[in-house]
Each structure stands twice: as structure tokens, then as C-alpha cells.
Simulated scan of single mutants.
Amino acid sequence: MSPLKPSWKQPSHPEIQQVIASNADDFTTKSLSKVSLPPFALFAKLEFPPCEVADEATYATVQMDKDKHLTLNSDLLYINHSCEPSLHFDMRNMKIVAGPKGLRPGDELTFFYPSTEWSMAQPFDCFCGTPTCKKRITGAKDMPSHLLEGLWLNDHIHQLLEEQALLRDTQQHSASLSESAGHGLLRRGITSRELSGEMSGDTVAEA
């Protein structure tokens, strides 16, 4: 898929964001902070317009609910992924906030894609270079739980993870019951009492 050509006037957020396009023909565009913010302070609001609800998930959308996706239609699109992000996309409150370390001018603007995305439209290998890099980013659905521990995730991702865990537990329980039932049938033979007719009711009293 070719890079998305912006349909919006650029720059869209010149006061807070500097977009750097390393190569117009690939996906190496990134953006840097132009502001200093304390942890979890507001960086930008996600407003309609320019945002629009998307018909389907693409590499250029952000998941905003369990089954809804958002087209940003702004330079906020150029906020890349990192396993140790500088920003959080808070989709319940429709805003972007600084991460736990805050922001300084010159910091690269990044967020953790599985914090919003259940299943990535285009999974990719991560080269963020952070100590906690997850290596392969496919969305929260396919990530082992230990890779998501301690990370900020949106409400809809927490809900989908809980539903996934419940479904897995139900399937495992059903499989365990089936296995136990199968083993029980294999182990159970005809008892001596049944052979003698005491349990089957076929004992005939003599006249």
C-alpha cells in the first residue's frame, strides 16, 4: 500500500508538532514535539471535524471503540509507534495526552499502537530500540498477556481482552469436561453386581 497523501492543509498542528518527512515515497515520516508538558497533560483534542468515523480499519485509522475506527485527517497521523511511547491516545475522552515521562521539545511523538488497536490492519516488525521492545506488533488480540502488563491501554482493549480470556476459559473448561467424560467412559466397566443382575433388576424370584 502506498503512503497516504494528505487531504488536509499542512501543517495542521504547527504550535505543537513538527512533521519530518525523511522520504516522501515510504513510511519514514515522523513528528517531534514543539511543546513541554507534564505527565498526562493534554497534547491535542480529537475533534469532529477533522476526524471522521471510518468505514473499516486501515493502517491510517485509530480504533476508538470495540468496533469503531477513526480517520484523523490531520498531521496527528504521523505519530508513530513505540513500545515506550511519549503519548497516550485516550479514545474514551477523545484526546491525546503526554505519557508518564511528560514531553519536551524535540521528543519524538509516539504511542503504543496496541493500546488502541485490537487487530492491526498491517502488522509489522518493531524497531523502536527501547529496552521493552515487543519486536512484532499485530494488535492486542495476538499479544501474550505478559507483553501488555504495566502498559496503558484503552477501555475497549481491556474489555476485549477480558472477553477473550473468558472465552478461552470457557473453551478450556468445556474441553476438560469432555476429556473427563471420555476417560470416565473408558474406565467404567460392568461391575460384578451388574453381572449378577442385582443392579439391572433382572433377578427373578423363584415361585
Rank of each mutant, 00 (worst) to 15 (best):
K9R: 14
A140W: 03
L87P: 03
P114M: 02
S74K: 03
P38Q: 13
E52G: 11
A21K: 12
A60P: 05
L77D: 01
D169Y: 03
K95E: 05
A21Q: 11
C128H: 02
Y78F: 09
L161F: 01
S33Q: 09
F89R: 00
S115G: 14
Y78M: 01
G201C: 02
P105N: 04
D125E: 15
K5H: 13
K95N: 02
S74Q: 00
G201F: 05
N154S: 14
H146Y: 14
M1Y: 06
A207R: 06
P123H: 03
L32H: 07
E56G: 09
L186K: 14
A175N: 10
G201V: 04
K68T: 13
N23K: 13
N154E: 06
Q164T: 11
N80R: 11
L77P: 01
A41C: 13
T28R: 13
H146Q: 12
Q171V: 09
L160I: 08
K34Y: 12
M64Y: 09
L148H: 07
T170L: 08
P39F: 01
L147K: 10
G197F: 00
S31I: 02
T170V: 10
D75N: 00
L42G: 12
D65K: 00
G139L: 04
G201H: 03
P38Y: 13
S176G: 07
Q18C: 14
L103N: 03
L153P: 07
K68N: 08
H158C: 11
S145G: 10
W8M: 12
G150W: 05
Q10V: 07
S36H: 08
P144C: 01
S7P: 03
E179W: 14
H146A: 11
G197R: 04
T71N: 15
I137N: 05
D75Q: 05
Y59M: 15
D26I: 00
K45R: 07
L70V: 02
E117V: 05
M143N: 02
V19W: 01
R168A: 15
Q159W: 06
L185T: 08
H88C: 10
N73R: 05
R104M: 08
Q172A: 12
D26C: 09
D25H: 12
G129P: 02
W152K: 12
S2K: 08
P114Q: 03
P100H: 05
